[in-house]
Simulated scan of single mutants.
Amino acid sequence: MVSYEILAEGIMRGDASIVESEVNKALSEGAEARHILVNGLIGGMSVVGKRFRAGEMFLPEVLMSANAMHRGLDIVKPLLAKSGQKATEKIVIGTVEGDIHDIGKKIVVFLLEGNGYEVTDLGVDVKAEVFAQAIEEHEPVILGMSALLTTTMQNMGKTIDLLKEKGLREKIRIIVGGAPVDEQFARSIGADGYAPDAGSAVELVGKLITS
Rank of each mutant, 00 (worst) to 15 (best):
G190F: 12
E97T: 06
P60S: 02
A54Y: 07
I103W: 04
D15I: 10
M57E: 11
V23F: 08
E203Y: 07
A54L: 12
A195E: 12
A134Y: 02
D121C: 12
E113R: 03
E139W: 00
V2E: 02
I107G: 00
T150M: 03
A201F: 14
E61I: 07
K127Q: 15
S28K: 15
A81P: 00
G177K: 09
E165M: 09
E183F: 07
M12K: 15
Q133T: 13
G190V: 14
A198D: 13
L149P: 01
F131K: 10
K90M: 09
G30I: 08
E203H: 12
L168N: 07
A68F: 04
M145A: 03
R173C: 02
K82C: 00
A198S: 15
G44I: 02
M45A: 03
S3F: 07
K106L: 13
Q85A: 15
D161E: 09
R53A: 15
M156L: 03
K106A: 06
G157Q: 05
V181P: 05
V76L: 11
K82S: 12
N155W: 04
M1V: 11
E170C: 00
T95F: 05
L143Q: 03
P60M: 05
N67Q: 13
I135D: 00
G177S: 07
A134W: 03
I160P: 02
K25T: 10
K50Q: 15
E97L: 13
R53N: 09
A8L: 03
V202T: 08
R187E: 13
M156S: 02
V108R: 09
I11R: 02
A186I: 08
I107H: 01
G10H: 04
T88Y: 05
L122G: 10
D74N: 14
R51D: 13
R34M: 11
V124D: 08
T88G: 10
V92D: 03
D102I: 07
T150H: 03
V92M: 05
N115E: 12
I175T: 08
E183V: 10
I172H: 05
P180T: 08
H138Y: 12
E139D: 09
M64H: 03
F58G: 06
K171Q: 07
K127S: 14
G123K: 13
F52V: 07
L111P: 06
L143Y: 03
L37M: 15
G157E: 02
R13K: 15
P78F: 14
A198T: 14
L79D: 06
G44D: 04
D125E: 09
D102H: 08
V23N: 10
A87V: 05
S83C: 07
K164Y: 05
R187V: 11
D74E: 15
A191I: 14
L73E: 12
I174D: 00
P140Q: 06
K106T: 15
S83H: 12
V124S: 11
R169P: 01
T120K: 12
E89Y: 14
L122M: 13
V124P: 09
E89V: 04
V202C: 04
N24V: 04
L59F: 07
E29W: 05
L149Y: 04
A201N: 14
M1S: 11
E20V: 14
Q154C: 00
V92L: 08
Q154N: 04
D125F: 06
Q184F: 06
K86T: 15
E22D: 03
G114H: 01
G167D: 01
T88H: 10
A26R: 04
G177D: 06
V96D: 05
A191T: 14
S188Q: 13
R13D: 10
